[in-house]
Structure formats: structure tokens, C-alpha cells
Amino acid sequence: MTTAHTVEQVPVTTLANGHRLELTVHTLRGASEGPRMVMFGGVHGDEPMGAETVRRLVAAIDPAALRGTVVLVPVANPYAHAALTRNTPLDGMNLNRTFPGDRGGSVTEQLAAVLCEILTGADYFIDYHSGGNLASVDYAYIHDEGAEMSKAYGCRVLYAGTPYPGSATGWALTHGIACMVSELGGGGQRIDEYLARGLDGTLNVLRTLSMLPGEPVAPPADQVVVGTLSTLRPTMGGTMLCEYGVDRIGERVAKGTVLARIVHPATSEELEVLTAPYEPSILVLGRESMTNVAPGDYGLMVADGSTATPAV
């Protein structure tokens, strides 16, 4: 089997101004036959950490050392990526709620349909996400089909959650593809650390699957699987003052602990207090010490520590 790195511009559709929307797809073919791994970054445009992780993986994976094939799409939603928005600006749709899409539909529906075509025939799939423009996150989803990938990736908290309807992972699992979703970094904080962890974690996944040579690094000794994860969304907008910020992600805190306060930006009136809902609560998504929030924003995210079991 001849090694190769090919780059293809896969057409999606043509816009009203005549611009041709395309996806850049890298294919790394290894020196020997083996599994097919697909990786997506940038499904949500306000999560450039995933796109950058996949871009760096293109250079980090040596086809000469590879067994099988790795297909990488660094920017799965180009217009959302350019606008730094979660949803596609052209139709307002969330790409990760649109799979399997529709080749005859709107821009986002056509993107989903093309991405499904790229996923078809894969053995493994990793979807890279992060905390968006203002928050950092640190966990990975774990599914029965692909559990070894999630453990090898190295996050200390693994979430055994059901995929969202219309997500790429949900579609892939129903088509027999083993999956992992990375939720790592974001918010412009600790960028180099999170990028290094995403890169190293993925290479360790490939070693675990015997797609790259070398002995895999063992998962963290304190890695746990949790069954419940909740987003704390403020009902009032204002200035969010975090008492447990990005530097506290991963900590366990007692139920009722004050995690953040929402204050009026002009009068300093305290509008709302966000507290830990579980005994204990494990912080998995946080913000910097001060950020603006609107009603319903992702404020913080915590896992129910009482559901935690060793990942072993």
C-alpha cells in the first residue's frame, strides 16, 4: 500500500453571489491496510480550538508510520468558522443538530449531507468541540462503541451521555461507527495547553487502536465516568463574576457552593447566584473571572460526582 497525503476540495453548493462552498478534506493513507478514522473540527464555528487541533493533526500524523487511513476535515462549517458563531450565519441552523442533512436543502442541511458522505464507511470517528468564545471545557463523551478511544484521549472526566438528536455522533453510532467527542478548551484561555492535550490525546488514541506504532500512555489513574451532567444557565443577564473559574475546572465542590454571581453592570445589584447542584459537583466548564452573560447563556457546567465510577 503506497503512503500518501491528498487534499481535496469537496463541493457542497453554490451561494447566491456565485461563491462555491467547498470543504477541504485531507486524506492520509498509511503504509499498510487498516481501519478508517474520520476527524471533524469546526462543526460549531465559535469553537476554533477543534479546527486548529485537526489542522495540527494533519502535520503530526506521518503516513509512513500509519496503519490504515485517516480522513480529516479541519473546518466542517466554513461560514460559521469565519463568523465565530455556533450556527451557520446563512440560515441560522445548528449543523450538529442537522444530520443526516439533505442534499436538496439549505446550506447547513447540505453541509451535513456531504459530511455524512465523508463519514460513510468509517470504522472510527472523532468530533472535536470546545467551550465556545467565552468558556473553557474539559471532558470527553464515552460510548460503548469507542470507549477505548475516550479513555485513551486522557480527559479525567468522561460523560456517558446520549448523543443529541441530529448530531454527527448520533448518526455515526447508528451506522456502526465507533465514536468519541472531545470537549476541550475554548474561551481563549490556556490555548497552548489545550491544543497540546488534544494533539497528544489523539495520537495516543491512534496508538491504542494500533494505527500508529508505540506503546499507548495509560489513562489517568483518577479518570471517572459520570452519568449526569448539567449546564447552569443564568436566567438574568449581566456581569458574571466567577468564584470557580477556568483554573478550577476538574475540582469537586460541595452542593450549595457558590460558583458565580450575576450582577447588574451599572448598579452592582446582585441579580442571581449560581450554586453547585450536586453532592459533590465536578466543574467541567468554566469562564474567566468576569464575563458578560445573557439570559440562558452557558454559564457553567458540572457533573454529578455521585454518579462517578472509575473508568478502568
Rank of each mutant, 00 (worst) to 15 (best):
L72R: 10
E22A: 13
V157L: 11
T202H: 00
V217F: 00
V226I: 15
V225F: 05
V273R: 15
T108W: 05
Q110M: 11
I142P: 02
G68R: 08
T3I: 09
T174H: 10
L300R: 12
F99N: 09
Y141S: 14
H264L: 02
T98E: 09
I249D: 03
G105C: 07
A4V: 00
A276I: 08
M240T: 05
G170V: 06
D138M: 03
L199Q: 13
E52H: 13
M149R: 02
A266E: 10
V312G: 15
E117I: 05
T257I: 04
A65P: 00
L173F: 11
I191P: 00
N94C: 06
D222N: 14
G176S: 10
D102C: 02
R261E: 14
V302C: 11
E33I: 00
L206I: 10
A266N: 06
Y153K: 01
A65G: 01
I118F: 12
V246R: 08
A51Q: 04
V75L: 03
G30S: 09
L158M: 15
L209M: 07
G154M: 09
Y298K: 10
T235N: 05
G170F: 10
F40N: 03
P213K: 08
E33H: 03
L84C: 04
P213A: 06
T88R: 09
P295F: 10
L15H: 14
G227C: 00
Y124G: 04
V43R: 12
Q189C: 13
G214F: 07
S268A: 14
N133L: 10
T13H: 01
M149Y: 07
T69E: 15
R233I: 03
A122R: 04
V71K: 11
V25Y: 13
Y194E: 08
E288M: 11
A59T: 12
A178T: 08
T228Q: 15
V70F: 06
V225K: 08
A4F: 04
S306H: 12
D46V: 04
T235H: 09
A311H: 07
T257R: 05
V284T: 15
M49W: 12
A308E: 03
H44R: 11
P310Y: 02
W171K: 14
I262P: 09
A221H: 14
C242S: 15
L300D: 08
A160W: 08
G185L: 05
G201N: 13
L209G: 05
C242H: 07
I126A: 07
V75M: 04
Y244N: 03
W171M: 12
V10P: 01
T120N: 15
V258P: 00
S32Y: 07
P213I: 05
G256M: 12
V43G: 02
S281P: 05
A135W: 00
V293M: 12
V7Q: 13
G18L: 02
M180W: 03
C155I: 02
N133Q: 05
H264I: 03
L199K: 10
A178Y: 07
A135Y: 01
V205A: 06
G132D: 02
L95K: 13
